[in-house]
Design a protein around this nucleic acid. Structure first.
Lengths: 255, 255
DNA sequence: CATCTGCTACCATAATATGGAACTTGAGAG
DNA sequence: CTCTCAAGTTCCATATTATGGTAGCAGATG
């Protein structure tokens, strides 16, 4: 059984545990309920093995079952852990006042995002004063290559483009799906310090982002400001980019 | 497809997976960060084994590490899964309008709770019109024996008092810590259909609850109305109890 | 500088997970 | 009403995989 490309660490001797955890990730917002056969198919595991792992997950309340058809879905234990994870995340706590400030000054929505697998997860969000704009997306995830935060991340962190999935999914006509093209952009991002997306994630939606670093300089995630493309001209994006870089630096602990 | 008495089936052949999942539950709001040694101690596992499992959890982003001291804490993957679990829970969706109604009519806070291990998890909450009252507790958990919802649950579900932990923790001077005493109350609850707590969870805080059942009659969780003891006299509790029973029944799917 | 504590790597052992085959149940068709 | 099929569950011999002792490291502490 070969492990996928090294996402983080290549752990050995925990196959069963890893498999169980990966099963959880098969439950997406698009496919919130899965039957045994579907799970086993997607995971590429034997039906028996899958069944055993699902049972374990179920017995710990990580999964729930639909009483009528026996399908599995994410369970209450995850809700509890998720909420707790959010509230015990100190980056999030420290970033909160900054996000507020950014949203207030710009009038747009400000977010804090961190990488997870090949996506960016919205850790926190403060909506701007405009009515039109992103809202209520904490916990959702977007492909790295189609977000400003994601591009900032791969431009500056150690893993770089290795974080990307094999195929770069196309979400709009302007999404970058060509690796070469993306790498050009990354060089540009490194040069000026911030990243931007224009209509690449969603039509009419743009964003600017800068990476957030930890005490030892390691990249933890990214801050962004985003809103309707109409309001985010090239000039304005540049100005917001600079603001974000300053804000992100202020977030880095100094020893 | 009937899974009877052993709600928490004892799955075999998934030891490693189970252990990994249990490790996650060691991270409580009181102890959001744990070092390897602490985890291994609390879990009663060998240090090496624990280390391997933690690595696996970390590699899947279920755990994060504090860069300065290497301590583990709940990670971003759980935030994503948690939010998703909340949004894909149909009981929660269906209960929402009812909770609103209950909160509006009573002026107090209404909650939907489900059991997990030996606690009740607040799945959803609508705060009442009064300023004083519970708020912002979705995702938190309380001991079964000290909550109205918990007592309703063990009075009506199959597992019953088996859900309780060995020792009944004392949270206030009025918390029930004597099993005999608790069983008397349970009989009373069965008789009248709803449960109540008065100053048992927190001084000056009371609640009333009724169980919610699924399509086949199995107990899924409980609805409650709670607020300051001052406002919840015995008479009022009885009236709210009846209201809750009706509301809970309306939530049960009919085939 | 010496010592300690807590984390990680190594590796032989046996306990544990694995998956094939068989059984059960429920649904749908004939 | 019976037959067939699909999906879930149980059983069990096998060897793969997890286990935990010991040892090595690195960063904190005195």
């Amino acid at each position: 059984m070969e492990y996928k490309k090294t996402d983080k660490a290549p752990p050995q001797g925990a196959q069963a545990a890893l498999r169980a955890l990966r099963l959880l990730k098969l439950f997406t917002p698009e496919q919130p309920e899965l039957q045994l056969a579907e799970v086993s198919g997607r995971a590429g595991l034997n039906k028996t093995t899958t069944h055993r792992l699902l049972q374990a997950l179920h017995s710990e309340s990580m999964l729930d079952r639909n009483a009528s058809n026996g399908a599995y879905r994410l369970g209450p234990a995850l809700m509890a852990l998720g909420v707790q994870a959010l509230s015990s995340n100190d980056l999030r706590l420290r970033a909160r006042p900054l996000l507020k400030r950014l949203a207030e000054d710009s009038g747009e929505t400000a977010t804090l995002e961190v990488p997870i697998d090949d996506t960016m997860l919205i850790l926190d969000e403060v909506t701007g004063s405009h009515f039109v704009g992103a809202a209520g997306n904490v916990g959702t995830r977007w492909p790295i290559h189609a977000t400003s935060t994601g591009k900032a991340l791969i431009a500056f962190d150690e893993l770089g483009v290795d974080r990307l999935s094999e195929q770069l999914a196309s979400l709009t006509s302007r999404t970058i799906t060509n690796r070469r093209h993306l790498e050009d952009q990354i060089r540009e991002i490194r040069r000026r310090g911030f990243a931007e997306t224009v209509d690449e994630l969603e039509d009419g939606f743009s964003g600017v982002a800068a990476v957030v670093r930890g005490g030892t300089g390691q990249v933890l995630g990214a801050l962004s400001i985003c809103g309707p493309t109409q309001r985010l001209s090239k000039v304005r994006r540049a100005s917001l980019g600079a603001t974000l870089c300053t804000a992100a630096e202020r977030l880095q602990p100094r020893y």
